[in-house]
Design a protein around this nucleic acid. Structure first.
Length: 556
RNA sequence: UGGGGGUUCGUCUAAUGGUAGGACAGCUGACUCUGGAUCAGCCAGUAGAGGUUCGAGUCCUCUACCCCCAGCCA
C-alpha cells in the first residue's frame, strides 16, 4: 500500500469514533497560544494538528489567545503570532478570540459554583496553601476556610473583584478533594487577585482566572469539539471535565499528544528567551533560532516545515525528532523551487591565459533542472574569473575531480579549462590560478567525446557582485542540549561556530535585484536566501542548508 | 513511596489477534555539465519474564526503565 492517504493517527481515530458514535457531529478545534513569546516549531506542530484535523473533517479552527495572566502577556506578541500562523498557511477567518473576552461569563460561572457549594474563598497565603496541599505521597489537609457559608463566599468573592484586597491575600478555590491522588484535584485555585493592567481589559479586573478555570469553558463557549493539547495537560483533564460537568455546559473532548522535540535544539520558551536576552543570538528572528520567524529568515519554507511535522508523526510517545529530517524536508522542497545561481563563497582568482583580453561572452545557464518552466538566463564570461578556493589543490588527493596542476575541468555552462600554473603569496597561500581554455568546448561540451570528471562553478570577476554570506551551523553541540554536567547549563553546550560571516563573496550579476526572502541554490554549495539586511548596495545571503556532500563525507 | 502517561530498527512512525512495513540517518552501486537531484540495493527493531491462543508487537500477569503533576504559570 504505497498510495498517498490522508494522515492517520490516534487523534484522527478518536475523532472518527466520536463522529461515528454521535458524540459530536462536527469537528471544531482551536489553537490557543499565550501571547507571551514567539512561536517556535513546537507550536507549528500544534497548529498543524489543530488546523489539520479540522480541515480533514471539514470543520473549523479558532485562534484563541489564552490571555489570563496579564503580568506575563504582551500585545507585541499578538500580531507576531498571527503572522506566523498565516505564514504556515492556516487561517481562522473571523474567529479570532481571547480568553479575556469571556471574563464576565467566567465570573458568573464562578458565582454559580460558589452557590452550588463547589467553590470557596480561601484566606490562606500562597505558602500555606502549598503546605496544606500535601505532597505526591501524602494527602493534603482541608483549609480552615473551606466551610465558609455561601453568603460569605459570595460577599468575599465580590469584594475580591471590587479590588478591596491586596494581591495574594485571597483566592477562589474549587472544592473538590484534598486527598485526591491527582494533585490538580486538591482544591485548585480558580481565581487570584492581580491588580495588573491587562492588554485588552485594561484595569477592569483585579481578579483573573487561572488556566484551568478558563480553558475548558472557553472551548465550551466556542463550540470546540476537540481540544488538542500536549501531554502536560493530561493530569489536568479530570479537572477540565469537572468544571464542565459542574457547570453543565457543552462538553468538548480534550485529547493530548506528545509535543515536538528536535535534536540539537531547545524549545523551551524560557531558554529561548535566555538566548535572546543574553545576546547569544541576534534576536528572536536569528536564523539559528527554532522560532518560526527565525526559520523564515533562515530560508525554511512553510511547506518544508509542514512536511517535516507530518513525517515526524503524531503519537503519545515522548520523542525527539532528528533535525536531519527537517533538513531533508527543506532541501527536498527547495530543490524543486529554488532557482540555481553561481556564487563563490571563498573566492580564488582564475586567469585564462589564452582567452582574449576584453572579450565578454554571454553563456546560457539553466535556472532549475528540476523545473523546465523556470527557463534559462545568460551569465557573463570573461578572462578573469573567481572560483571556489576549495576547487583547487596544488597536491590533490585521490579522487579529487577539481582543478589541480595539469588537470582539466569543466566550468559550468562554460568551457573546459586546463590548469597550467598558480601563484603563491609570501605565506604560501595560493592567490591566483592560471589555465588555458579550449575554445571548442563552448557551453561545456566537447566534440571529441573527451570526458572531464569535474565541473566547477565560477563568476566573471569584472561582472561579479560583492556579497556578505552568513553560514550557519547547529546552535548546540549536543543532540540534547538540556543534558548538562554538574554546574553547567544548556548555554555551555552552545556551538561557538554556529555563525560564520563571510564578506567579499562573489555572486553572479543576475542577483542584483534580489529581495529579502528570495530563495536560491548556489550551485554545488547549498540553498541560500536573501536576508532582511540585504540592500542592492550590500547583498546579504543566509545559508539555509547545505547541499548533501558525499565528497566531504568521503574525506572524513 | 500517590496519581497520570509511555516503551517497535540509530531516530521518528505504521501494523486495530494473521507475512513486523515506511521515512530519515548510515553504507554500497548506477547515472550525472551541480561530488546536487534521481535510481537500485544493503544495514537495522517489538524493554524483560511468564501466560492465553492454531497464531501475540497487539490480550492477561508480573518486572524494569523513562516522562508529567506538589505555580496564586500556561
Amino acid at each position: 500500500m504505497t498510495e498517498i492517504s490522508a494522515p492517520t493517527n490516534f487523534i484522527v481515530d478518536a475523532v472518527e469514533e466520536d463522529l461515528a458514535s454521535g458524540r459530536f457531529n462536527v469537528v471544531h478545534t482551536r489553537f490557543p497560544p499565550e501571547p507571551n513569546g514567539y512561536l517556535h516549531i513546537g507550536h507549528a506542530k500544534a497548529i498543524a494538528i489543530n488546523f489539520g484535523i479540522a480541515r480533514q473533517f471539514g470543520g473549523k479552527t479558532n485562534l484563541r489567545y489564552d490571555d489570563t495572566n496579564p503580568v506575563k502577556e504582551d500585545i507585541e506578541y499578538v500580531d507576531a503570532i498571527k503572522k506566523d500562523i498565516h505564514w504556515l498557511g492556516f487561517d481562522w477567518e473571523d474567529r479570532e478570540y481571547y480568553a479575556s473576552d469571556y471574563f464576565d461569563q467566567l465570573y458568573q460561572w464562578a458565582i454559580q459554583l460558589i452557590q452550588q457549594g463547589d467553590a470557596y474563598v480561601d484566606d490562606l497565603s500562597a505558602d500555606e496553601i502549598r503546605a496544606y496541599r500535601g505532597t505526591l505521597t501524602e494527602p493534603g489537609k482541608n483549609s480552615p476556610f473551606r466551610e465558609r457559608s455561601i453568603q460569605e463566599n459570595l460577599d468575599l468573592f465580590n469584594r475580591m473583584r471590587a479590588g478591596e484586597f491586596p494581591d495574594g491575600s485571597r483566592v477562589l478555590r474549587a472544592k473538590i478533594d484534598m486527598s485526591s491522588g491527582n494533585i490538580n484535584m486538591r482544591d485548585p485555585v480558580m481565581y487570584r487577585i492581580l491588580h495588573a493592567n491587562h492588554h485588552r481589559t485594561g484595569d477592569t479586573w483585579s481578579i483573573y482566572p487561572m488556566y484551568d478555570f478558563a480553558h475548558g469553558q472557553s472551548d465550551s463557549l466556542e463550540g470546540v469539539t476537540h481540544s488538542l493539547c500536549d501531554l502536560a495537560y493530561e493530569a489536568h483533564r479530570p479537572l477540565y471535565d469537572w468544571f464542565i460537568e459542574k457547570l453543565d455546559i457543552f462538553h468538548p473532548r480534550q485529547i493530548e499528544f506528545s509535543r515536538l522535540k528536535l535534536s540539537y535544539t531547545i524549545l523551551s520558551k524560557r531558554f529561548l528567551k535566555m538566548l535572546v536576552e543574553g545576546s547569544h543570538v541576534n534576536g528572536w528572528d536569528d536564523p539559528r533560532m527554532p522560532t518560526l520567524v527565525g526559520m523564515r529568515r533562515r530560508g525554511y519554507t512553510p511547506e518544508a516545515v509542514l512536511t517535516f511535522i507530518d513525517k515526524a508523526g503524531v503519537a503519545k510517545n515522548e520523542s525527539v525528532a532528528d533535525i536531519s529530517l527537517l533538513e531533508f524536508c527543506v532541501r527536498d522542497h527547495l530543490n524543486k523551487i529554488a532557482p540555481r545561481v553561481m556564487g563563490i563563497i571563498n573566492p580564488l582568482k582564475l586567469i585564462i591565459d589564452n582567452y582574449p583580453e576584453g572579450l565578454v561572452e554571454e553563456l546560457e545557464a539553466i535556472n532549475n533542472p528540476e523545473d523546465e518552466s523556470a527557463g534559462t538566463r545568460m551569465v557573463p564570461f570573461s578572462k578573469v574569473l573567481y572560483i571556489e578556493k576549495e576547487d583547487f589543490m596544488e597536491e590533490p588527493p585521490r579522487k579529487y575531480f577539481r582543478l589541480s596542476p595539469g588537470q582539466e575541468v569543466r566550468l559550468r555552462y562554460g568551457y573546459y579549462v586546463k590548469c597550467t600554473g598558480f601563484i603563491k603569496d609570501e605565506q604560501g597561500q595560493v592567490v591566483e590560478v592560471h589555465c588555458t581554455y579550449d575554445p571548442e568546448t563552448r557551453g561545456g561540451y566537447s566534440s571529441d567525446g573527451r570526458k572531464v570528471k569535474g565541473t566547477i562553478h565560477w563568476v566573471s570577476a569584472q561582472h561579479a557582485l560583492d556579497a556578505e554570506v552568513r553560514i550557519y551551523d547547529r546552535l548546540f553541540n549536543r543532540e540534547d542540549p538540556d543534558m548538562v554536567e554538574d554546574g553547567e547549563t544548556f548555554l555551555d553546550n552552545l556551538n561557538p561556530l554556529s555563525l560564520l560571516v563571510l564578506t567579499h563573496c562573489k555572486v553572479e550579476p543576475s542577483l542584483v535585484n534580489t529581495k529579502s526572502g528570495d530563495h536560491f541554490q548556489f550551485e554545488r554549495q547549498g540553498y541560500f536566501c536573501t536576508d532582511l539586511d540585504s540592500t542592492p548596495g550590500h547583498l546579504v545571503f543566509n545559508q539555509t542548508v547545505g547541499l548533501r556532500d558525499s565528497w566531504s563525507k568521503m574525506n572524513k
